[in-house]
């Protein structure tokens, strides 16, 4: 319990420090989502602590993800008019992204000779964690491994996000929000909120839609592509 609390405190302290470094350097690899886990994993390995003893305190932070997800209702409510105006392009963009996510995961996994378990566990990786895990379960993947791929997608997605947006000249707020939220769920949305409040809101909508579309489409697409 005490070690759990210490790890909780350590995580918050390192996070706040990382946030400050990120704010002053602006370099993507200094993102708190990269620096904090790396430093803490290094610390756990050096002191020979297990993830379980860490997570006795860490889970308190994971638990806050629930009310934080619910909090997306506020920007949603504030920007509802803009959302309604752009409903068509948001829905089309997310739908295309969801299909690309499922098909690219399966085809790439197949070409790189990954096992069937890993391939199916990779399929829901751009969906927000709880839903990704339940999709993984229903299509024959391993939910806890899917959770790892989801977080990996989130980290890599926020890292490459700004360059991809620049490379493809994705320069309006609607398209940026769809792009980040569809590809990189909550972490992408957090990046989108750094760009602007509207971009973040669009991104949170995209994140929800990606989850809903994936629930409906993933099983069917897998059936078509695996056989």
């Amino acid at each position: 319990m005490i070690t759990g609390l210490l790890f909780l405190g350590l995580t918050i302290a390192v996070y706040l420090l990382a946030k400050r470094i990120y704010a002053s350097s602006g370099k993507m690899y200094t993102s708190p989502l990269i620096i904090t886990p790396l430093l803490i994993i290094a610390f756990l390995l050096m002191t020979g602590s297990s993830y379980e003893s860490y997570n006795a305190g860490g889970k308190w932070l994971s638990d806050l993800l629930q009310p934080a997800t619910i909090a997306f209702a506020i920007p949603l409510h504030k920007n509802f008019k803009v959302l309604k105006k752009h409903a068509a392009e948001i829905a089309a963009g997310v739908l295309s992204g969801t299909v690309i996510a499922v098909i690219s995961s399966m085809l790439l996994a197949k070409w790189l000779h990954l096992s069937g378990d890993l391939a199916t566990s990779l399929v829901p990786r751009s969906v927000t964690t709880p839903i990704a895990m339940s999709i993984s379960q229903s299509i024959g993947g391993v939910p806890s491994i899917t959770a790892v791929f989801v977080i990996l997608t989130g980290v890599l997605g926020t890292m490459m996000g700004p360059s991809v947006l620049r490379l493809f000249r994705i320069d309006n707020e609607i398209a940026r929000g769809v792009s980040l939220g569809t590809a990189a769920h909550g972490t992408g949305t957090s990046k989108a909120f750094e760009l602007s409040s509207l971009t973040g809101t669009i991104s949170s909508i995209a994140m929800i839609l990606t989850a809903l579309f994936s629930i409906g489409l993933a099983p069917a697409l897998i059936a078509v592509f695996l056989h």
């Binding site: 752009h86 068509a88 392009e89 948001i90 089309a92 963009g93 997310v94 295309s96 992204g97 690309i100 996510a101 690219s104 995961s105 790439l108 996994a109 790189l112 000779h113 990954l114 096992s115 890993l118 990779l122 990786r125 751009s126 791929f149 990996l152 997608t153 890599l156 997605g157 490459m160 996000g161 991809v164 947006l165 490379l167 493809f168 000249r169 994705i170 320069d171 309006n172 609607i174 398209a175 940026r176 769809v178 792009s179 980040l180 569809t182 590809a183 990189a184 995209a206």
Partner: peptide, 29 residues
């Protein structure tokens, strides 16, 4: 064991989703 392959799938896949959904949304907009 499979880290590099997994990394490749996630990198290329995420890149494709980001580019595809963003470009399409922008075009319709």
């Amino acid at each position: 064991a499979d880290g590099l392959q997994v990394l490749a799938v996630v990198l290329v896949g995420t890149f494709a989703v980001m580019a595809g959904s963003g470009v399409l949304t922008g075009a319709i907009y």
